[in-house]
Design a protein around this nucleic acid. Structure first.
Length: 133
RNA sequence: CAGGCAGGCCACCUUAUCGCCGUGUGCCGAACAGAUUUGGACAUCUUUUGGUUUUCUUAAAGAUUCGGAAUCAAGUUCGGGACAGGGAGGAAAGUCCGGACACCAUAGUGCAACAUAGCGGAUAACAUCCGUCCGUUGAAAAACGAGGACCAGUGCAACAGAAAGCAAGUACAGUUCGGCUGUAGUGAAAUCAGGUAAACUCUAUGUGGUGAAACGCCAUGUAAACCAGUAUUUGAGGGUAGCACGCCCAAAUUGGAGGGUAGGCGGUUGGAACUUUGGGGCAAUCCAAGGUCUAGAUAAAUGAUAGGGCUCGACAGAAUCCGGCUUAUGGCCUGCCUUUUUA
RNA sequence: UGGCCUAUGGUGUAAUUGGCAACACUACUGGUUUUGGUCCAGUCAUUCUAGGUUCGAGUCCUAGUAGGCCAA
């Protein structure tokens, strides 16, 4: 798994799937915001042994056209892919992550990436804090 | 030149690094299963022999079981990695028509309802396409048209007008002075077989319903629920997209394995496909021969960064698949028209 | 993905078979009153948009826009 994380991949195995998982996340998950991205996470184990599973959301209320939603989701995935080594190297336990885009306009890649890296740092801090306390 | 009309074509390109989803061919690892050989464990059974009154126990042989090693063969599943090759549209959109495909007698028949509407052709089919007549718009190139029937019946016609069909009849003029004819006036329409059918209706043609989350299969797993066969009576009651007929259904017994929920596989991408040449046809399009393989995801794949080029990139993302229509929209090319202006 | 519905003053609703778009509340203006309230009078419409049928369209037909609902 370390090899995988070092190579910055984002394969099928790391995608969060299943309707139930999403319901659990939305109802029980904890949330961190760094505008314009919100992280919603919850601890859960996976059958195939992967430590993290990730999903990405662009709400239909804000982006009416399919191509805009696609664009936002691609940017989120790409920025997670480039920054995922942060998480993999500094965290223990299994988590499901859900990134929700909150802005009203289609962003540039730079905006999304800076938000993403800040968000992941916060997530790591909060996680280690919870473990110590 | 400018404006307009019609038709066709393209949908930023390229290099490097990282990344996503199928397909094909090798490689590596793991698990399961197969065959052969080898030696073993001792669990069970059978037979024989000895000890013991018997239970039991000793030894040998055979069978079953278990796991180990080696070899062969290369099967299935999972994971990793390599190489090759592919990876959104002209509208993928709206879901407005027409089909394909699947299931359902609650699917049939009649009425009803709905749709279409000059004429001829094309097509799997259509409300689409082609040709043509007529009408409308335009100066023209051209475009658009639900364009059948008010000599079958019913209805409607505000205001104006004498009068908008059970009827009634103004003024003036002409006159053969019974009446008839013409004009005026109102209006979209006026004794004209009047107007109106995107009014009811009639005529002709067509239409069963539900939609891939349809539907088929697998694993998990349980009921008075489901399916099939047999037997039997009441045919009361119930079901049915608007109605009627018709059709279907309850309870017994035997056998079988269905529904909900969450999951996997198929359906699922090779097709009324695209393209080249030749032939028929004014054309839509058809026929023959050759060539090509062209997305298949399932919280849902095409992106990011850096550099270069140009015209500086519009509208916009497949979800069962086709034929159209409609709407959104950047650029290029070809042909045609000229009210006006300039030459 | 598939299916369905709605749209009329600022708000909530009417409008028979196509014939002058109506009502209530709100807002504004004026009047009544010493002032305010009540009351009286008046004002506020591209009938979602664009075409078509028709003499005439809120109504009929076609296309679009926006909003909403249902099956999951």
């Amino acid at each position: 798994m370390d090899e995988v994380s070092n190579k910055n991949t984002f394969s099928k195995q790391e995608k969060l799937k299943g309707k139930k998982n999403f319901e659990i996340l939305f109802t029980k998950g904890k949330r961190i915001k760094v505008y314009p991205v919100q992280l919603c996470y919850h601890s859960m184990g996976f059958k195939d042994g992967s430590p993290l599973k990730v999903a990405v959301v662009a709400p239909k209320k804000k982006f009416k056209k399919a191509i805009q939603r696609n664009r936002v989701k691609r940017l989120l995935r790409e920025s997670y892919r480039l920054n995922k080594s942060l998480v993999f190297n500094n965290i223990e336990g299994n988590f499901a992550l859900l990134f929700v885009y909150l802005g009203n306009t289609v962003p540039t890649f730079a905006q999304v990436e800076s938000a993403m890296s800040q968000l992941l740092k916060k997530f790591i801090e909060q996680q280690s804090h919870e473990k110590n306390s």
